[in-house]
Write a protein that binds this DNA or RNA. Sequence first.
DNA 1: TGTACATCAGTGAACGCGCGTTCACTGATGTAC
DNA 2: TGTACATCAGTGAACGCGCGTTCACTGATGTAC
Lengths: 195, 195
Amino acid sequence: MSDEKRYHHGDLRRALLEAAEAELAERGIEAFSLRAVAKRAGVSHAAPAHHFGDANGLLTALAAHGFRQFLEAQAAREAKATPDPSAQLVAAGLGYVDFALQRPALFRLLWGSNRPDFADADLSRAAEDAYRHLVEQVSAAGGRTVADESAMWAVAHGLADLLSAGRLKAIGSFPDDTRDAVLTDIFSRFLPRPQ
Amino acid sequence: MSDEKRYHHGDLRRALLEAAEAELAERGIEAFSLRAVAKRAGVSHAAPAHHFGDANGLLTALAAHGFRQFLEAQAAREAKATPDPSAQLVAAGLGYVDFALQRPALFRLLWGSNRPDFADADLSRAAEDAYRHLVEQVSAAGGRTVADESAMWAVAHGLADLLSAGRLKAIGSFPDDTRDAVLTDIFSRFLPRPQ
DNA sequence: TGTACATCAGTGAACGCGCGTTCACTGATGTAC
DNA sequence: TGTACATCAGTGAACGCGCGTTCACTGATGTAC
């Protein structure tokens, strides 16, 4: 039954989110349109309205979903690291960069666009969960000041943004394990200092 | 003669660049259109073609101009700092952030858009000048490795991007001199270490 | 100083296009009895 | 188990809009003589 043509899609909401991310990746947010997303999902161009209202509604839902995946990318690295708080903080930083490299279009939607409605309840909750995770990690590693927290966030964010945009060519051209080693070196410089 | 209505504008190229930046600031790159820029500059919507070809041509020229102003913002901070190489490097970082806060729309055009043609000769020269400046500053301050260079770039970029987007609310709410002190503290952690 | 002419910058009407939105509709699904 | 009906998801045609592009044009400027 999976390949028969059905009137009701069955899981159009999810299909539209995937199509939207693919559109962002291929054509960029500047050329994003609801009609192109619907076409990619194989559905008439008026169908998305049932699920998301308009294009910004779809992008808002996609951004909320993106923040959850963003946290998952960090959790995946943390699970592989030793439980030491500093190692966990470095792992979160590596996950931050992983996400930006693996989903650059989504990364830009989260951090560099004003189209999602960041006042939306679901999206703002997802974004705050991500922020809270950072604060907790820094705190567990001994960070106490605004500077501690901002330093770690900024360096992770800067590396992620520059790498996903194809700048920082030196690091970008390293094999994965070499890249991880250099990134770990950099993150280590920013670890909160013992008082 | 300045307020009389003339057929020839006189300095339409510059006026279009200014109008384009204002449009970016007000409506975002996602809604950028040549017609709106022309209207803002008080000129018919076909006029920009004489100077820039199309919208991407205009954005490319604006980006090249932006990179030069980006370097100027750093130079302004460097001129006020002591000549010590580490102090100069920190000053460059503060200028990086200044630019992002003062011209957020332009900052996003330079670092977060794919609409400018980065293969354009003038733009790529301007972008490379900015990159070279960074490398030289890091080198003068004793940086020798890819990690030294990337760390400094990433933290400056991350602070600039997050602050200009209104994240990092703690630092963003400080008065200017307090903000500079916190940023200087953060940059100092990333200064190349003596071997 | 004056005239003729070439070049250039900007105009404004016209065009075709893809967009979001609306709306009457149709087919599928779920539920009451 | 069957029937009737309400609700829901998706269709497809229609619309008006702003967009980029084209093009014949006009007014301004510069230059040759």
